[in-house]
Amino acid sequence: MYKITEKKVLNKDIDFMTIDAPLVAKNAKPGHFIILRVDEDGERIPLTIADIKGDQVDIIYQKMGYSTQLLGTKEKGDTISDFVGPLGQAAHIKDKKHVVGVAGGVGAAPILPQLRAYKEQGTKVTLILGARNKDYLILKDTFESLCDKVIYTTDDGSYGEKGLVTAPLEDILKTDDTIDHVIAIGPVIMMKFVAKMATAHKRSVDVSLNPIMIDGTGMCGNCRVEIGGKTYFACIDGPDFPGEAVDYDGLMKRQNYYKDKEHECYMRLDNHGS
């Protein structure tokens, strides 16, 4: 059992949680993720390690479907069944002068440790943070003290620029020659268009792929992604990959394969609540 030592509700859909997990904390680096199971009947779900403090591991999760919502019912002092990691390849922090991070929604959580690592090695960091509306812009203070510049976009214009993250991205790629790398983490559709734009403007781009996973150790093959016609296992080869040649459409389809099944689980969650 793994104890929840801290929990904060960041907005209606997104929670922050700290878990006591010395075996995960020991060797964790930016870009690593964990897999957890809320209870004995639970799914194994992957979440990025947002930060490490001693034996404590921070996660930030969006309550998307059954498992993340169930996790959201847990409070400080409660325990969850399983918490394993660090998984995946640590992010490859490259030798760059000026990196632009592009994060959509909860993608702000996984991009944070990477931007921090870039900053620590002396790279200039600009962040474009996009969300549905101003309530969904998370970690604002953290980013503002970390990054050289933060640009906000919201779908409804309630904060920052109205529209998608790709609009300000295009502006700065056109105008700022010092930018030599882009990192995109967020919904697959966002990563697809960011990668396309970065490539069109001749910048290298890294994305963080999030297929459905089970074991996270290379055993099941559920997490396979196609890049440039070759198959990779995101859990052991990734989750970070160069973004130019990823089959994003395939990834989206694979993520949605069990969508109809999720409905049946939801009904269970409703029972839980009542």
Partner: peptide
């Protein structure tokens, strides 16, 4: 979609007990 490696399929059914879905949450 629908192409499984045996490990994934058997892991879903055996380890994650998806045959008890939705009681067990893995489909």
């Amino acid at each position: 979609n629908g192409v499984y490696f045996a490990n994934e399929f058997l892991t879903r059914v055996n380890l994650m007990r998806s045959r008890n879905f939705p009681q067990a949450a893995t489909p």
